[in-house]
Simulated scan of single mutants.
Amino acid sequence: MITTPEKLAATNKAAVESLLGVSAAAVASAERLAALNLNTARALIEDSMSSIKALSEAKDPQAFLAVQQSLVQPGTGKLVAYYRGVYEIATQNQEEITRLLETRFAELNKDLNAALEAAAKSAPAGSDVAIAAVKSALAAANATYDNVTKATRQVVDITEANVTNATTAAVKAVDAVTKQTRKSA
């Protein structure tokens, strides 16, 4: 329970600072994503121009096919690198926001425990049971939060492993198709 205007102001200030931290993390993530997109677009234009030039210099259909096949593997690698970059930005943003929110949750939990202790000291006789029930509910909520956080981290770890495996498999598949196409040509 907030008993003084100073405590209310401090609580409001902490909430605003948390919100500003989350906003700053989101803006930083958007900036990094925009930079990745611009760099990717620039590289795509440059690669397209050099590809068009190489294809236009082909003297016969077989040379044209050979040039075309030679462009597949680097393009796939760049596409995979782009998606990895997007995934890393999203993951880092999620981790930063989670860290900020966990910090704020811990502060709120500490404040609530302090308020309960203060209430217990000034509570009338016989209210021990009610205060113990609130403390028990708070402990259960904290345990549930910890379990959800652990489960979420496990899901994130599994997802990252699956994305890495899928990316590796996709690159290997493209390499195999490219090699097979070269052999048959």
Rank of each mutant, 00 (worst) to 15 (best):
V156N: 07
V67T: 14
T144C: 06
V86S: 06
Q180L: 12
Y82F: 15
A137Y: 06
N113Q: 12
L55V: 02
R153C: 00
I45P: 00
K13Q: 14
A63E: 15
S48Q: 11
A161L: 10
Q73D: 09
K135D: 07
T181M: 10
T167P: 02
V155L: 12
E95I: 06
V16A: 14
T159F: 08
L79K: 02
S48D: 08
K179I: 05
V22D: 04
T167I: 05
A173G: 04
E57A: 12
L19R: 10
A170D: 07
N37F: 09
D128H: 01
L55P: 04
T11A: 15
N37Y: 07
A151F: 11
K7F: 09
E96G: 00
A34N: 05
L19T: 11
E96R: 10
I52Y: 12
A173Q: 08
T149D: 10
L138Q: 15
A14W: 04
I158P: 00
I2G: 04
A25C: 03
K172P: 01
N109W: 13
T4S: 15
V163G: 03
P61C: 01
T76N: 06
V177E: 11
A170V: 06
L100S: 05
F105I: 06
A140K: 12
K183H: 09
S70E: 05
A58V: 01
A114K: 12
A151I: 04
L38A: 15
A169T: 08
E57R: 11
N93W: 06
